[in-house]
């Protein structure tokens, strides 16, 4: 346990996002670079989910809570907060983390960075699907950095948002 602990202490400067107690030693399979994963099932964006999420990120912006305010501002319905797309991105990420070919050890994953590029904001009533591509796999010393690009589409097939996420998978030092 001693060596295990010291490895963990070294990474406390990183933001540890997902850890459990598995002790397998793996890094990411470089061959998944460019791999595209199947579209996820439809995610239906509901008003109460938007309100709940907005409350959780400490928003007080009326367009997140008040349908009339959102419609006055020109939207069809309640507007989701700028980081709401993470909920949809998560569905695609789950398929990668479960993919034996990608071979990503979930217990060693740290969230490195995150970006959301919106064509338009997500609004209540949207029926979204997402499609994830492994944009790059890089090695940084003992660690691997995997960048995922998740495109989120609405029910008409139009792109709504691209979510870009880099996960750092810690290797042994």
């Amino acid at each position: 346990m001693g060596a295990h602990e010291s490895v963990h202490k070294k990474v406390t400067s990183l933001f540890v996002e997902t850890i459990n107690m598995r002790k397998t030693r793996r890094v990411v399979n470089i061959n998944v670079q460019g791999k595209k994963y199947a579209r996820t099932a439809v995610y239906s964006v509901g008003r109460e989910k938007i309100r709940e999420f907005a409350h959780a990120v400490k928003s007080s912006n009326p367009v997140n809570f008040d349908v009339f305010a959102a419609q006055t501002a020109g939207y069809a319905d309640l507007v989701a907060p700028p980081t709401f797309a993470v909920v949809v991105q998560e569905r695609s990420l789950a398929t990668v983390l479960a993919d034996p070919e990608a071979d990503i050890d979930f217990s060693r994953v740290v969230h490195g960075d995150q970006r959301f590029v919106h064509v338009r904001p997500i609004v209540a009533g949207d029926e979204l699907t997402s499609e994830l591509t492994v944009a790059s796999v890089k090695t940084l010393g003992a660690h691997s950095m995997v960048t995922f690009e998740t495109q989120i589409f609405d029910e008409t097939g139009a792109l709504v948002c691209t979510a870009i996420s880099t996960l750092v998978v810690r290797g042994d030092e």
Partner: peptide
């Protein structure tokens, strides 16, 4: 990340106007 952007949201008054948002977790 979600809380930090509220400063920009409050300033512009409309969450739908944040078109691109990125952070690094340091």
């Amino acid at each position: 990340m979600g809380a930090a952007v509220q400063v920009a949201v409050d300033w512009v008054g409309d969450a739908g106007r944040i078109v691109d948002y990125q952070v690094r977790f340091t």
